[in-house]
Simulated assay, not measured.
Amino acid sequence: MAVRLIVRTFSELCITVGTVIVLFVVYVMFWTGVQAESATAGQIDTLEQEWIDRPVPGTTAAAPPPKAYTTGKGIAVMYIPRLGRNWEWPVLEGTSTAILKKGLGHYAATARLGETGNFSVAGHRRTYGDPFKDFPRLRPGDAVVLTDGTTWYTYRVARTPYRTVPTDIGVIDPVPRRSGFDGPGRYLTLTTCEPEWGSSHRLIAWAHLDATQPVTQGKPPALTG
């Protein structure tokens, strides 16, 4: 009887543990994606409404000066055609865990979008919508397009993704180390975790600003070609 009780208890424990593991996998692979889809759509809707409410250049209302970025608030929308036809993600200010559940995050200590320096952005490789799941597919010349509602900024990837460790903060310097850039410029850095389901390393993609155009002229060639 004692042996039978032990076997039955152990079996029930295994079933319970197995159920918990399955539920956790479902949460990580499915539910976080559902949460991210809702959160990112809301962030993009909020940004687009703010852009609609801005004074139109040339009207009696003077265009306000650029606002300082606010932690947790959307600042731009990013498109990377290489990563998918419908790949579209909001960029928020900050890189905390809570912020990266809602979209991509801008490193607060780095340059503003389009300005001289290094506009640096982090994103999840897996979970919360898997924004950078296909990050290793990036190749030199690929377009990374952002808009802040007034201007389109088209950056071009400079090299294949670079693998490094999390403590290598020089990758987001104004002139990022190991990027191949040899002086000040208007740069973009993208960072994500490596390996795909881990975080022991980081993958880095560097890009340089290739072109800008007002949103009034329509989408840039990188998104319409």
Rank of each mutant, 00 (worst) to 15 (best):
residue 147 T to R: 09
residue 119 F to R: 05
residue 217 Q to F: 11
residue 21 I to K: 04
residue 57 P to N: 07
residue 103 G to W: 00
residue 123 G to S: 07
residue 130 D to R: 11
residue 169 I to N: 11
residue 194 E to Y: 14
residue 155 Y to I: 10
residue 65 P to E: 06
residue 135 F to N: 02
residue 96 S to V: 08
residue 118 N to P: 10
residue 168 D to A: 15
residue 207 A to D: 00
residue 222 A to T: 01
residue 210 D to P: 04
residue 139 R to K: 14
residue 149 G to P: 11
residue 213 Q to I: 01
residue 181 F to A: 07
residue 26 V to Q: 00
residue 173 D to H: 13
residue 21 I to L: 13
residue 212 T to S: 06
residue 211 A to K: 11
residue 166 P to N: 05
residue 118 N to D: 14
residue 221 P to K: 06
residue 30 F to A: 13
residue 114 G to D: 06
residue 61 A to V: 07
residue 177 R to A: 15
residue 176 P to V: 07
residue 220 P to M: 03
residue 198 G to N: 06
residue 57 P to E: 09
residue 197 W to E: 02
residue 103 G to P: 06
residue 206 W to M: 11
residue 148 D to M: 08
residue 56 V to E: 10
residue 185 G to A: 10
residue 157 V to A: 07
residue 40 T to W: 10
residue 161 P to C: 03
residue 214 P to C: 10
residue 147 T to Q: 09
residue 107 Y to H: 05
residue 192 T to Q: 04
residue 173 D to Q: 12
residue 192 T to L: 10
residue 98 A to G: 09
residue 28 V to P: 02
residue 142 D to L: 05
residue 213 Q to M: 15
residue 12 E to S: 13
residue 39 A to L: 13
residue 167 T to A: 14
residue 135 F to L: 02
residue 1 M to R: 07
residue 157 V to N: 03
residue 179 S to N: 06
residue 116 T to W: 00
residue 91 V to N: 07
